[in-house]
Design a protein around this nucleic acid. Structure first.
Lengths: 400, 400
DNA sequence: GGTATTTTTTTGGACACCAAAAAAATGTTG
DNA sequence: CAACATTTTTTTGGTGTCCAAAAAAATACC
């Protein structure tokens, strides 16, 4: 049974809609906000008045504005106050540590990126090091640390995470186990801190980048070192009861099949990880250093055995997509990630796998397409998600 | 971006909550409604006043009530007016046609059940026949046909349905193709008519029967003639972009595996349908008429080859469950259906399949349990879903 | 019959929405 | 340059919803 509704909910939701419109479509006049949100001008004035009082938005003037002026009272543009709040994105991958500071208007105002040398981090030093780096970032951007509202930690690579406890159980980048991370960061900045999943952030970013196209129910399949999946179901990100949904790489494709790095047999990743795809190059006996690039070059040159290898991998991918379509019935499946380059050579195999793995009844009403891969997707998705969470923190009018 | 919120939404939602409380917990006094819904007494009086005016609820008196009376103003109970609206459930399976008429209070007030003899229905006669049977049902229950608000059609068996067009493309029970069904029924009774999925209704019924236990994210696996699945994700039924999500029976377990009735190779159903389980009995050479009962009897008597057969089927089921857990990360998986009787003999195989198919990281935080199977689940689920839809039809106070 | 107790209704206030009127700020024109 | 036209923003007034508190209603107890 849903919860009872009250007045505050209305205001909170309408307020959030206005903030989102401003974040998405830049500076806007009140009349435009009214048109976008369908709220009456009176209501827009009332809500933006509150937001101005709270310092979350501010007036904004451009020179362009005056040039193309028409008769009538000129519009007064509003925008999000950039320094009203900040979101920190931390990405910890196997050999790199990236940080980005995103302001309330959605701009990245500072970032830091450095290679991680072996054993640079241990269980004890990780969180102090992150606190230090975040403080440096804040200094660079001249942002007071009290304004940090959200910290998102993206742990990439073969990482074992305990979302509940907020710890990294194991990561190749950290020497040691059970690294406390959420609690120390949260305490240092008095901010909401979460460990998030990279594929989920890509999914969120796609939705944010084009809410028309990436709407309703769609699935993202991420081919990189490993194989990941992100689920956007009925208009929202789906994470499962314990935040561990959308595992596909280590689900079984073939009982007693090829040995996977995880120790089990027949996982999809055993056929579709970057390593697995690289090994296709070995089909050409003269190949001495297998890599995905080597394999792609051989395929481009028309090497038969290598093309057969990609076709076989494509067939496995086809079975994976068939499974996804049957389970989720998405409007769209998006393939992306660094290994998506190999897809052109996998098309035919993919089709055969889809044909053999998918019941005819379901083989239409969905599109499969490839999104160009951009590393920044992850940070953009994280920021968008965190900002949306902020927008819903409504503190009545009593706080004035 | 979510839609703007307005005042009517508040009333609609609170009204709906009160109606649901009354439907779930029988006759209730206003003060009890206030406690359940957390609405103030004043608001409860206001909303129930509207509902009384509209005839959707009515006062109710019992003799019990007076016996255990205490000091103070006595409670005056309210209940849903049984004849305020009706929902019709039609279930068309291979050899039977069942109809049930459910009143606004959730009681089944009339039903009809008859075997379907061969070729009894054709594309042209199906909908007139259904209209006729529904009218008979209404006469039996002395219900005016204008009060029929929702008609739900459950097409069971190997049926091919076009939900968009509201037609049954093909069904073993109907002689002919592309049977128009939603439009004629909808027109005949001026009611909302939908084709629904049986497994989805079981899922809805489980949630309705115990909203505490079956809440949030859970998955129902239905073992019957075939194999079905129902998904309740983040507190609501998930149907996919085209209403065809949750297919599991005809997803691939083993590339180039056992031949399935659908014509493809290696579907789960090829190993787990009632037919497939029945054939386990053939492991005992003396068996002449294979059936699930025969197989279960042989298993009960400790027949080794038959027990091995069930163990093998259990292993396949284990792989299916591993896949479900990885994809959806549910809090609970519920196994039910007529073939659930065979589960005791499949336990060990199931465990081995889960172990080999599920990455260790995910092998906790979920419960797998068996729900007793009751045919009525389907109708109860349908009625609950339809009633909830009705509760949200709020027609302001202007209609008075 | 008066008092205590419990439930229900009424009253009055706060607040969010909207439509319509008013005000503000500019361009256009005679 | 003042009056008018136009567009945006704010204010006003009204409706509807919620709630807290007071009042009313209906019963049991003494």
């Amino acid at each position: 049974m849903p919860h009872k509704a009250d007045r505050d909910q209305i205001r909170r939701q309408n307020r959030s809609i206005i903030l989102q419109a401003l974040r998405r479509d830049g500076p806007l006049a009140r009349i435009e906000l009214g048109q976008i949100t369908k709220l009456s001008p009176a209501t827009v004035t009332s809500i933006t008045g509150d937001l101005l009082d709270q310092g979350l938005i501010e007036g904004f003037e451009t020179s362009e504005q005056k040039e193309q002026s028409t008769r009538g009272r000129p519009r007064s543009l509003l925008r999000l106050t950039p320094n009203a709040a900040y979101v920190v994105c931390v990405r910890l991958s196997v050999q790199r540590l990236d940080l980005a500071l995103v302001d309330y208007s959605g701009q990245t105002v500072a970032h830091h990126s450095a290679p991680l040398e072996g054993n640079a981090l241990t269980s004890d030093t990780t969180s102090p090091r992150l606190v230090h780096l975040i403080r440096e970032l804040l200094t660079m951007a001249d942002a007071p640390s009290s304004r940090v509202q959200e910290i998102g930690l993206i742990a990439q690579g073969a990482v074992d995470v305990d979302v509940e406890a907020g710890t990294i159980i194991w990561s190749p980048a950290i020497d040691g186990r059970n690294t406390q991370i959420v609690e120390p960061l949260s305490a240092a900045f008095d901010a909401h801190c979460t460990i998030v999943n990279d594929t989920n952030m890509i999914t969120e970013a796609l939705h944010w980048s084009d809410p028309e196209k990436y709407a309703g129910t769609f699935v993202v399949v991420f081919l990189d070192h490993g194989m990941g999946m992100g689920l956007y179901l009925d208009g929202r990100l789906f994470c499962g009861a314990n935040g561990k949904a959308a595992e596909i790489g280590h689900t079984n494709h073939m009982p007693d099949g090829a040995l996977c790095q995880c120790g089990k047999k027949g996982c999809f990743e055993a056929y579709l990880s970057e390593n697995a795809l690289s090994r296709i190059a070995l089909a050409e006996p003269s190949c001495d250093a297998p890599s995905l690039d080597a394999a792609l070059e051989l395929a481009a040159s028309g090497n038969g055995p290598v093309l057969d290898g990609f076709s076989g991998a494509g067939r496995v991918l086809g079975f994976a997509l068939a499974r996804i379509i049957a389970m989720f019935d998405p409007r769209r499946i998006v393939l992306t990630g660094r290994s998506a380059r190999a897809l052109p050579y996998m098309q035919e195999g993919m089709r055969s796998g889809l044909e053999d793995g998918l019941i005819a009844d379901l083989s239409q009403n969905h599109e499969i397409d490839v999104a160009p891969w951009d590393e920044d997707y992850i940070i953009r998705g994280m920021a968008a998600q965190a900002m949306t969470r902020l927008d819903l923190c409504y503190k009545g009018t009593a706080g004035r």
